[in-house]
Design a protein around this nucleic acid. Structure first.
Lengths: 153, 153
DNA sequence: CTATTTGCAAATAATTTGCAGTGCG
DNA sequence: CGCACTGCAAATTATTTGCAAATAG
């Protein structure tokens, strides 16, 4: 369940390389924030990262954590869980369904599939817990955004 | 793509019934907020619901929309997209993976499955757009929460 | 050296809450 | 009629931003 020191150092090397390539400065704060992300299997929020990093870098500030996490996101080194910057959205469809989410505009459409409804993930998740329900989330480009793109952005 | 008037009215009837059963008052505002949710295939946020409902009920306020949406959520008539009340969370795992989310505590763990990696959802989503990637999101109860429950809450 | 980056404090955005009046059952 | 519900305005929470001082390359 833990991530090996070796794996962490490998990721850290990759980060240093990425900073050089992108021309961003490798500060103490950034390094420790990245290290924190690299060594956890959790999917922490900014505050959780802040609390952990503060133990090692007591003067770090919350806004540096946010700025660094978004920078890592821009560099493709972290992703957000769910859509970034999104407000709470509500879903009144009580039928069993799956979601298609447009990566450009955020449009979310339900779709149906007997095959996906029957997926059995119990074996793959046995170590984590008991399955209640399973949803497939497809990320893609919706037809409307594809149209716009064809017409030159 | 639209929801038939008949289907909407059926859902509205179910809502009235649910209100009676739960002993909550059926106000004009609640009815129109529910109707708005029942007749859209979007997954609107509170503001979007507010704007639509306001055309029919000009005096409705944003906080009534929020209160009603959460009430509908409590009654099981709507769900939220993603985890409710969550802050932005970050994920540093760049390997292909899927997510197990505990419905009790929100713990999110990655898991791996060649079978799930190979799912082909193109047929089911053809009408909506072009697939970029596919992620399976499993909702369940993590081992730790299952333990707690066994010991009596 | 000097352009970036940081920490602070203040701003913004989304959502929630207290309260006095309103209306459903 | 009474208590749950509403709208308002103010509070709260998460996140972002402007700016002067600090620092990586």
């Amino acid at each position: 369940m833990e991530i090996s020191t070796q794996e962490v150092e490998q990721r850290v090397s990759g980060f240093k390389e990425a900073c050089r390539k992108a021309g961003v400065k490798l500060t103490h704060q950034r390094l420790e924030i990245f290290r924190e992300m690299a060594q956890t299997v959790d999917h922490p929020d900014a505050e959780s990262v802040y609390n952990s990093v503060r133990e090692r870098v007591p003067t770090v500030s919350m806004d540096t954590v946010y700025r660094t996490l978004w920078m890592l996101n821009d560099l493709g080194l972290v992703k957000t869980l769910g859509q970034a910057h999104e407000r709470t959205r509500f879903d009144a469809n009580l039928k069993r369904h799956h979601h298609f989410v447009c990566v450009r505009c955020g449009l979310t459409r339900d779709f149906y599939s007997d095959e996906l409804d029957e997926l059995d993930v119990r074996a793959a998740t046995r170590d984590v817990g008991q399955v209640v329900s399973t949803l497939v989330e497809v990320h893609g480009v919706c037809n409307e955004c594809a149209q716009k793109e064809k017409k030159g952005l």
